[in-house]
Design a protein around this nucleic acid. Structure first.
Lengths: 351, 351
DNA sequence: TTGCGCTGAACAAACGATTGTCCTATGTTA
DNA sequence: TAACATAGGACAATCGTTTGTTCAGCGCAA
């Protein structure tokens, strides 16, 4: 339905190639001024836009990126996506969003589809350690960047935070507050964030001469419900912890709910620390102490790394690691960082 | 880099068209069994997948849809998107996500880009009343469905809730609780949800013989911050309202924050009702009374309507309107629907 | 022997754009 | 006046598929 080069060529009584060159502002095009005017007029009046599909076929670039994440209804990934789009959109790219729900099968099927579509690059925040789909991406020569979670031995282009430091930061904070029995709602050992944050937790305990009790580390996945279930088990212990470090804010939220149901006062009877600092963290009551990472920046940086690879045509191995930062709020220190204090509001409004 | 028909043809010593027909399981293809085997073997071993771009050019369909929304970090739109993807993905579609931040300019530029890419259809949850971009979509013959917000005189395919009923429901609830001064954090008059929910609010007041005080209707947009600012103004009134109906949950959250800062007890000194029932609503403390709408279903239904148009090749005028449902929680009735009560949890976990 | 009907493929024309090369009038120079 | 530039475009191949049409060979019947 939209106008094509051929039609315009017929109307302007020139060859399609001439129209194409005028439309693309070919710098070394020699053309008679009247002809150029005639064509430009035509282009304007018909609002000609080259067919992106045909263009993609010829030029071998689609101007489409894809973001592969577990679930966009998780605020962390929503913010991440915005970062990607905000960085890619000004460069003329559109962005596909693929939710995997953490299923390797869905992930693989999405990637196959993306490859068939010839997307120019993929940003993946859904990878496992030793992820075959990552290897596959590399093998297919598809430009990609991993975000938040890394894979393999760290040989992929990556954007994220130093999860070991972050885990240690969170745990040290609890130790400093005097807690001696500190539980960990842990991520999966198949995911880098799970491994590293757990390692940070263990390191902090060791450094402060605390022994790590295995029953205080419960794997919980990354959902609110998983966090709730794990917290239930942990808080049912006779010798239950006085503090919990949760691998993400969402799992911390799950623990919050359980503590509330059990009638435990936060932070007096149970202190909780999350990770990521999603907007919700600041709105909990009490507000959630957490490890802040620049989520939007993760996405934007990943997009830049990806575009850089696409521009140069060379795969990259650059890794951008942000320093995590502890944000102390009411879930560990009574009265701290309450949403009551106005100066805290902008911090979340900017997300 | 990936294998093409031509290459396969050379290897199998047949014409590319033959490979194509075998790969596509052409039902009325007559072929010698050994030849077929040879080709199928080759297809398998090379993992041949047709180039989607070339296919798109030839077949005039890209198997790509686009979702245009204000902002995916708003949980409402994130859930909406999941609905779309969950319905479209099994049919082989991938989905582009475009955030407009409510800017008509960004919206227009996104749609132009989508058109140039020849996406098969557009789902738009970002339209205004009398939206030129909607007219443009129609004029270009691009299949589209509006979600949540409608445009024009209701002649577009649309999925949403009955906002007038919803607005009335919310307001009547407050009236029934005995409130006489009820404020409204109102949506914009350029957006259908703003108009209709406001109209529902006014209707409910009128039906119960309450006069509508103009100072109690403050426009606030759809962000948390807008809600906060509007609530500040409204609660600063000498004769301030005892209850507020907010046009969306996010604006209600803004009002929550303000009330908390002013030291107002919810619901005793100020009752608040939101709209949409995003997961956050059930997690507030106290939990937020709101008007529930099936967000995920909005997206899934919109996708189905869109695919239907694409399949038949005919523009549709179908409108699917869901009945909104009042969910009474702690922000209007002390102790009601607290997250403390376990039975409420699944309602949000399913989002 | 001629002709007909099948089978099993090859041929070729699109889809719409991009881009290196070639062609034809002019006008210029020797 | 013949040779030669140069300007101004036309030509054509190509990207990878899809699909209507054609075609060669073979078996069989008249």
């Amino acid at each position: 339905m939209p106008v094509t080069l051929k039609e315009l060529a017929a109307r302007a009584r020139v060859h399609p190639s001439t129209i194409s060159r005028v439309a693309n502002h070919d710098p070394n095009l020699r053309i008679a001024p009247p002809t150029r005017q005639r064509i430009e007029e035509l282009l304007r009046e018909t609002e000609y836009r080259p067919n992106g599909v045909a263009r993609g076929l010829k030029l071998r670039q689609t101007l489409v990126l894809a973001v592969v994440i577990p679930d966009v209804t998780n605020p962390f990934f929503a913010a991440l996506f915005r970062g990607v789009e905000d960085a890619a959109s000004p460069r003329g790219y559109n962005v596909l969003l693929c939710n995997t729900d953490g299923s390797p099968a869905r992930q693989r099927s999405h990637l196959q589809s993306l490859h068939a579509r010839r997307v120019d690059g993929v940003i993946m925040a859904s990878s496992f350690l030793k992820d075959p789909t990552v290897r596959w991406l590399r093998h297919q020569g598809i430009p990609y960047v991993l975000v938040n979670r890394f894979s393999d031995e760290g040989h992929d282009p990556f954007v994220g935070s130093d999860d070991l430091v972050g885990g240690r930061l969170a745990t040290e904070h609890l130790v400093t507050l005097g807690h001696r029995r500190i539980g960990h709602l842990a991520g999966k050992l198949t995911v880098s964030t799970g491994v590293m944050r757990r390692r940070g937790y263990l390191a902090a305990l060791a450094e402060h001469g605390l022994s790590a009790d295995p029953v205080l580390v419960v794997e919980c996945g990354y959902t609110e419900e998983g966090g709730a279930r794990a917290a239930e088990r942990m808080l049912a212990l006779a010798d239950r912890p006085t503090a919990i470090f949760a691998v993400t804010d969402m799992t911390a939220v799950g623990a919050f709910g359980v503590a509330r149901r059990m009638g435990l006062q936060i932070p007096e009877e149970l202190a909780i620390v999350g990770y990521n600092d999603i907007p919700l963290a600041g709105r909990m009551v009490p507000s959630l102490t957490t490890v802040h990472v620049p989520i939007h920046e993760f996405g934007a940086t990943a997009a830049r790394l990806l575009l850089e690879q696409i521009d140069t045509g060379e795969p990259s191995r650059r890794r951008v690691i942000f320093n995590p930062e502890l944000i102390v709020r009411g879930s560990t220190v009574a009265g701290a960082g309450n949403p009551t204090s106005p100066q805290q509001v902008p911090a979340f409004a900017t997300e």
